[in-house]
């Protein structure tokens, strides 16, 4: 068993080390995300063939579905960080959880907005109170609640702990969002309406989708690390390492 892995993780738990690590990784993650995102967007909008049924309207899928995946993935990552933060009282984990929430909220908002833009021409409505749409809207409220709770405390640490607790409570909604289409379908008294078939997409349409998925994952890393760095400067402001950093940056400026 490699001993260096926990040691490395342990070191990363120290705010100055994480600050430097995040600063080193962020530009690469953002650059790669932009490159992959540009390729995926171009391929999705212009290269991939039109759908036999929906024509060009289906191209919203290349934004909508990766964003929807991210809205759940970020919640999962946030739950893990919140759990580690609450149980082991690791400050970095709390900060990672708290700074994940705005990114998750952004992706959830994109999911809802683009879904609405897709639903209007195809289904014939901007919005309907079905289980999937409703639970995704609830996900947005939970994200906003976490952000609000974190910032409503004067003591940041206290706010983070309270909000981390809310993260764990709100995690109940994640499987509801994911399985809502299946559960909802089985509630449909075995109708012949094929509401959900086996997910099937042709390869020429699949690869831009997967590329966009990779781009959004990298984007999350970049955005999260930028946020954690900003957060650490404020919350660790009194510590020696931030003061050192300040004088170093002044020298560079």
């Amino acid at each position: 068993m490699a001993n260096w892995v926990p040691l490395w993780l342990h070191r990363l738990g120290s705010p100055p080390v994480f600050y430097r690590f995040a600063g080193a990784v962020r530009p690469w993650a953002l650059g790669l995300a932009l490159a992959l995102g540009a390729v995926a967007l171009y391929a999705g909008l212009f290269v991939a063939p039109a759908d036999y049924q929906q024509g060009d309207a289906y191209r919203i899928i290349f934004i909508h579905v990766p964003s929807a995946w991210m809205s759940l993935f970020i919640y999962g990552a946030m739950t893990l960080a919140a759990f580690v933060g609450l149980v082991w009282r690791i400050k970095i984990a709390e900060v990672v959880a708290m700074e994940s929430a705005p990114v998750g909220a952004a992706f959830t908002f994109i999911t809802l907005a683009t879904g609405s833009l897709w639903g209007k021409p195809m289904w014939g409505t901007w919005w309907t109170w079905d289980a999937r749409l409703t639970s995704e809207l609830v996900l947005l409220f939970i994200y906003l609640g976490i952000v609000g709770l974190y910032h409503s405390f004067e003591d940041r640490r206290q706010g983070a702990r309270a909000a981390c607790f809310l993260v764990l409570v709100g995690a109940v909604n994640v499987p509801i969002v994911h399985f809502s289409v299946n559960w909802w379908n089985t509630l449909h008294q075995g109708s012949t309406v094929r509401l959900v078939g086996p997910s099937h997409i042709e390869a020429s349409m699949l690869w831009p989708l997967l590329t966009m998925m990779a781009a959004t994952k990298l984007y999350y890393i970049a955005s999260l690390f930028a946020r954690v760095r900003a957060d650490l400067i404020a919350s660790e402001g009194g510590k020696a390492w931030v003061r050192e950093l300040l004088t170093r940056e002044e020298g560079a400026a």
Partner: peptide, 23 residues
């Protein structure tokens, strides 16, 4: 985008603007 230019391009714009603000 066939007849769907408004919907597709608005979706792209929402995506890019929200993420730009987030960055």
């Amino acid at each position: 985008m066939g007849a769907y230019g408004f919907y597709v391009w608005t979706a792209v714009a929402v995506f890019l603007i929200v993420l730009l603000i987030d960055t």
